[in-house]
Write a protein that binds this DNA or RNA. Structure first.
Length: 569
RNA sequence: GCGCUCAUAGCUCAGUGGAUAGAGCAUCGGUCUUCGGAACCGAGUGUCGGGGGUUCGAAUCCCUCUGGGCGCACCA
């Protein structure tokens, strides 16, 4: 099937070139331009403002440019009429017969509807979640999880071979604290009078009490003399099981779990260090080169550390690669990790990060440039935070203490579909308030139900018509009315939406589109009946066929968002 | 203080150079009594945070001010 916005744009581009070849228009480079459905129906189905843009380079009036473009426009079967509107808009109208025939094209495409070849032969990687296994996933991670997986789905629809990756760290102090915390819970489970110290870096969550009970059930008291290490390993394994199970509930499964530690084991971080050094981006000092007097005073007396000179790449200050005690910071393996990504040959590597990691990603990109790598393949989506609202008040979240809201809790309270939709339906740039009461509400304020109800209504028609023996074989699609054609226009926009979302990595467009599509569907459902004595048999059959196509479109859209496609609710 | 980001209808938000700025919810009025009413139809609402600039054209780009959020570690 064709993507209409792109197809129209190609017609216009061909027309401009033809006009230039005929010397009707002077030679100039054709600028990037957009063709999209206009706001008002009287302005056609697709509209272009290119003639206005070209007025200056062409040295002509916009209206004259528009006339020339229209004159040279090649024929296309999907175009019924082209109109010029002052001051120079070109408005296209879709052909009704062609539109009606798209019912068959949609049904044939099925679950592969608007499967594009934009990324054909290309490999994309999306890295998301990437939470260290120190506790269950909490709400703060959930938005990135949904957005990351949705981007992966859209890239797949655009034709990319996509890998979902989870980057984690199972070494370091945090994990040691986790092991120590579990050890105390274990001793408690054995009845020993030990307490988790207040205020320390211990994990208070109840999940460790559960793990401790399981540990006692499996090993009895035999671990009582062990230090934190085996406890850490046990906790880590359990935690990952927990995290993966949670993610699976919202239809997220990663292909690769990348352990940061492997970059230490194979020496990759030291290779990167050496290369950065050779290129002149490493130095040893107690403070960074541009340090203020105040900073120098603070650093006085410290042992020298190893710094990454990243200010040449527009970063405000240099960052430490290796601490004075000889251990690397997070920055060094992170640079090595992204180098590894690029060397694995991905054409596109998308990284979903929280707003607090903004500077860190800049440093990593600087690292890529310093290494002479093509950092343009790395795309970072910075997400603003999610705020949880209950009864109009913010619910405070904390990973360390036990009183936080986990993603599991959220799914239990609402539903996987509500979580997927509500966390997706917002631009990543804006902060997201997740209103628990609204998400729990089973009423029409919740867009999830409005969208899925369209599918349920289709299923209802199919059940009833099957009983009544109405067939939709070999129907005459020209019997479809203007309402059905209106829905088809909107349905065909899905191609534009997928292409745009994939190109700009903006998955929230799909969520808004889904709601709009449902908004076009429901009024039609009311007026365009199949089983009604006033409806002639051949019209009923054509309409039934139409609803089959509608179901295909809704299913495709819901699956692109990782949502279920119910037949009953 | 510096960097990033956000500010659009009563509320939650779309809209990133084009035509008269749009949805949903809420509010008010109506349909209907059902191929699933979790529905449909109709009505009103805007100093696009303020100011300046670029442009034939700005919610959109630039500057500036105000007000939120997030960063500005030898943490990850």
């Amino acid at each position: 099937m064709i993507v209409l916005a792109t197809a129209h744009a190609q017609l216009v581009r061909d027309a401009i070139q033809a006009a230039q070849a005929a010397n009707d228009l002077p030679a100039f480079e054709i600028p990037a331009f957009e063709i999209k459905p206009p706001k008002r129906p009287e302005q056609g189905d697709y509209a272009a403002s290119i003639a206005l843009q070209l007025a200056k380079p062409a040295g002509m009036k916009p209206l004259d440019v528009a006339r020339l473009i229209v004159y040279h426009l090649p024929h296309a079967d999907f175009v019924a009429a082209v109109e010029i509107a002052p001051p120079g808009f070109i408005n296209f109208r879709l052909d009704d017969d062609w539109l009606a025939q798209q019912v068959e094209a949609i049904i044939t495409a099925g679950s592969q509807l608007f499967q594009l070849d934009h990324g054909k032969g290309k490999r994309a990687q999306v890295e998301f979640v990437s939470a260290n296994p120190t506790g269950p996933l909490h709400i703060g991670r959930s938005r990135g999880a949904i957005v990351g997986d949705s981007i992966a789905r859209i890239l797949e629809a655009a034709g990319y071979a996509v890998e979902r990756e989870y980057y984690f760290n199972n070494a370091g102090m945090q994990m040691q604290n986790l092991g120590s915390s579990l050890r105390i819970r274990y001793l408690q489970a054995l009845g020993q009078p030990v307490e988790i110290p207040e205020g320390g870096n211990f994990y208070q969550g109840d999940y460790l009490i559960d793990f401790a009970r399981q540990l006692v059930a499996e090993h009895g008291a035999t671990w009582a003399e062990h230090d934190w290490q085996p406890f850490k390993e046990y906790a880590e394994q359990k935690m990952f099981g927990n995290i993966r199970a949670t993610l699976k509930r919202i239809e997220i499964e990663h292909d690769v779990f990348f352990n940061e530690n492997s970059l230490f084991d194979n020496g990759a971080i030291w290779d990167v260090m050496e290369e950065l050094d050779q290129r002149g981006y490493v130095y040893k000092s107690v403070e960074w080169e541009g340090a203020s007097e105040e900073e120098k005073l603070k650093a006085a007396g410290k042992e020298p550390a190893t710094w990454f000179r990243c200010t040449p790449f527009g970063i405000e200050k240099d960052h430490v690669l290796v601490k004075s005690d000889g251990t690397p910071t997070y920055t060094l393996p992170d640079i090595a990790y992204h180098k590894d990504k690029l060397e694995r040959g991905f054409d596109l590597a998308v990284n979903i990060l929280g707003a607090d990691h903004f500077v860190q990603h800049q440093v990593v990109k600087a690292g890529m440039q310093a290494l002479g790598l093509d950092e343009s393949k790395i795309h970072v989506i910075i997400m603003q935070f999610v705020r949880l609202i209950r009864q109009g008040k913010e619910v405070k979240m904390s990973t360390r203490r036990g009183d936080y809201e986990t993603l599991d809790d959220l799914i239990d309270e609402t539903s996987p579909d509500a979580v997927r939709y509500l966390l997706l339906a917002r631009s990543p740039d804006s902060r997201l308030d997740f209103d628990l009461d609204l998400a729990v509400a089973q009423n029409n304020e919740n867009p999830v139900y409005y969208i899925q109800n369209a599918l349920v209504r289709c299923a209802g028609i199919f059940r009833q018509t099957a009983e009544a023996g109405v067939s939709d074989d070999a129907v005459d699609l020209s019997l479809l009315g203007t309402d059905e054609l209106r829905f088809l226009r909107k349905a065909l926009e899905l191609g534009d939406i997928i292409e745009f979302s994939a190109l700009n990595l903006e998955p929230h467009k799909i969520a808004f589109y889904a709601h709009e599509l449902a908004g076009v569907f429901h009024p039609i459902y009311d007026s365009v009946r199949v089983l009604n004595e006033d409806v002639p048999a051949d019209v009923a059959r054509a309409r039934l066929r139409f609803y089959r196509a509608a179901q295909v479109v809704f299913k495709r859209v819901l699956r692109l968002m990782g949502m279920s496609t119910p037949e009953y609710m």
